[in-house]
């Protein structure tokens, strides 16, 4: 066992996959000699050579597109977009080809590709470096959207994504790239895709989240327990699409309340999909309206005021208490954390 950060777990999984399968190739801007701007591919070009760890010219449309050709030829490309905000030139190739080549050819050709990108805010990045547009990808049939929220899940889910026969958008929450270290065993064991992870059981309210927001959500669950005697379940969705709604429904059946937490803007965010499905299949177990704690419907503000946009523990606690007290308003004043 080694104690590693989330980004180191990504490197470990990539190295493991490349060792196991000579068809796995990495490509992207600065992934080789430099080891990636976040060091996610550190040392891999030295180890596996420049033919398998490819520094490409600067062009995301071509990166996305050559991966389609490579994959159809039996390679297993893992393509990196340096930041999610720079993945959009690749959308044409991802939406028009990667996601549907299998369907177009009735299974004759397919696209076992992983498109990786660091995503989300909270690192004081310049404009366009804080995007959380996972819902754009989740809207595209034929893709998997996978988001790890811990070193263990980064390792296991990335291995699963690389071995998966279909295209995966693998979004790495860069705010927690180095937030914690965990023991990760480099045993080549993948974790299951298409399943939520229940990080905490609870009877009073179900908190549903993914990505970096898992951190604040878990902290909120602790505070809800210690300060308010509210027993919150925490579910890390992990694979947004295809969605494991059963796990969420089972928890809400027990708690009767659901708070969905995500960093992305509210309108058309993936939380809306979960809320809609709860309304369709879980309405009768609900004791209170579904709450969403999300980013606002605005361009992510620049570094100077970004903290006002990012979701925080306070907002999650307040929403959970509203749900639990419904139809009454929570009596005791919500505690407030120091404004960052």
């Amino acid at each position: 066992m080694t104690e590693v950060t989330l980004v180191q777990a990504v490197s470990m999984a990539l190295a493991r996959a490349m060792e196991e399968d000579e068809n796995v190739v990495l490509l992207g801007e600065d992934v080789g000699v430099n080891g990636g701007v976040f060091r996610a591919t550190k040392g891999l070009q030295k180890k596996f050579g420049s033919e398998r760890v490819i520094d490409t010219p600067l062009a995301e449309a071509a990166i996305a597109g050559v991966a389609v050709g490579m994959a159809a030829q039996g390679l297993r490309p893992v393509a990196e977009f340096q930041f999610m905000g720079f993945s959009y030139p690749g959308l044409d190739q991802i939406i028009c080809h990667a996601s549907r080549l299998r369907n177009r050819t009735r299974g004759r050709l397919s696209c076992p590709i992983v498109y990786r990108a660091p995503y989300g805010g909270g690192i004081h990045g310049p404009e366009h470096h804080s995007e959380s547009t996972e819902a754009l990808y989740a809207h595209i049939p034929g893709l998997r959207v996978v988001i790890p929220s811990s070193p263990v899940r980064a390792y296991g889910l990335l291995l699963a994504a690389i071995r998966d026969p279909d295209p995966v958008i693998f979004l790495e929450p860069k705010r927690i790239y180095r937030a914690v270290k965990q023991d990760v065993e480099d045993d080549g064991e993948a974790l299951p895709l298409d399943l939520c992870f229940t990080l905490r059981d609870g009877d009073d309210v179900t908190l549903v989240t993914w990505g970096a927001a898992v951190k604040e959500t878990l902290a909120a669950a602790e505070t809800l327990d210690s300060r308010y005697d509210i027993d919150a379940a925490v579910i890390d969705v992990a694979t947004l699409t295809p969605l494991d709604m059963d796990t969420i429904l089972a928890s809400v059946e027990k708690t009767g309340r659901c708070v969905i937490v995500h960093e992305a803007p509210s309108t058309g965010g993936f939380g809306a999909e979960i809320a809609a499905r709860l309304a369709e299949r879980g309405l009768l177990s609900l004791l209170s309206p579904i709450e969403r704690v999300t980013g606002y419907d605005v361009v992510p503000p620049g570094a100077r005021t970004e903290h006002r946009y990012l979701i925080n523990e306070d907002r999650i606690i307040a929403a959970a208490r509203r749900a639990v007290f419904f139809p009454e308003a929570p009596t005791e004043q919500d505690h407030t954390m120091e404004d960052a």
């Binding site: 509210s266 606002y296 419907d297 605005v298 361009v299 503000p301 100077r304 005021t305 006002r308 946009y309």
Partner: peptide
């Protein structure tokens, strides 16, 4: 630092009703 509301105030020529609560 800019006013807190500034993140909303330049999104559209006029603030849409739907954004007022946020």
């Amino acid at each position: 630092a800019p006013e807190a509301a500034a993140m909303f105030d330049y999104m559209y020529a006029e603030l849409p009703a739907d954004l007022m609560a946020q």
